[in-house]
Amino acid sequence: MSRVLEVSGLKTHFFTHAGVVKAVDGVDFTVSKGEIMGLVGESGSGKSITGFSILGLIDPPGRIVEGSIRFNGEEIANAKEERLQNLRGNRISMIFQDPMMTLNPVLRVDTQMIEAILAHEPVSKQTAWERSRDALGLVGIPSPEERLRAYPHQLSGGMRQRVAIATAFLNKPDLIIADEPTTALDVTIQAQIIHEAQKLTKKTGTAMIWITHDLAVVAGLAERISVMYAGRIVEQGGIDDVIDRPLHPYTVGLLGSVPTANRRGQRLFQIEGMTPNMLALPEGCAFGPRCHARTDACGLQPSIEDIDGRSLRCFNPQRAAEAVT
């Protein structure tokens, strides 16, 4: 399989008054053509910043301080703005979390879709309009002509998110970064949207990074999963492997907090403690203070290792698995 995206050693830091926030601090992963990869982690773990780094949308006081982002073989970390602008919305699209906030309230839907095409292709407005209409049809929007003429506030949240998804697919990108696109929607709509997105990736061969804090969402959607904690990937592997047999204590914890059919009746497991303060991470393993499987070794920083066809950042993978079962 050809690799669409290869991220290695990515570090994106924010230089604030209060100190340096290492929002992304050494992230490696790859995404292949047509693959959906889930990027999972608690709030503040650096998922969105990873996505924005790929698009080159990190604003001061933040910047990519280290690492490489290869897109179709081309290095795009800290690439020229011109080049990035060319890729954004064209080869790499992004869908944001809150559909109520992402569409511009004073511009009609057609304006906002057509401009996404015209920014990258010298086609006529008419052609662009037709393509927008067809794209809306593809994500299951009834009477797309009418919707095109609407202002965002005339559409429901689910409808707006479909518009955003349709827009993301407009230029047939190689990669779509979907940043928690269903978190703000209610459960039935969420399922529909996930379904539409999955269908479209299959159809177009677009690769996708699906960011979420909800393991249940990616379980049925992604092929591979990367779990992030405090700016680093702690576990990465095939979705079934990871879900059936999590090796990292944090993943175990995340899974424990998801109610699933086969563990019905069991007490939901919660990860203890607070999400870490990104300005003052503990020495050694960042998950240490909240970890059940902690040993003396954990006073050092675990590095990422390949075990059983997956990547793991933990000194005591076995103990972790035992702790829950």
Binding site: T16, H17, A18, G19, V21, N277, M278, L279, A280
Partner: peptide, 14 residues
């Protein structure tokens, strides 16, 4: 954003 980080700094710092 920065509010949050400052609060964190106060709660966890010296």
């Amino acid at each position: 954003m920065s509010d949050v980080t400052t609060d964190n700094a106060l709660s966890a710092g010296e």
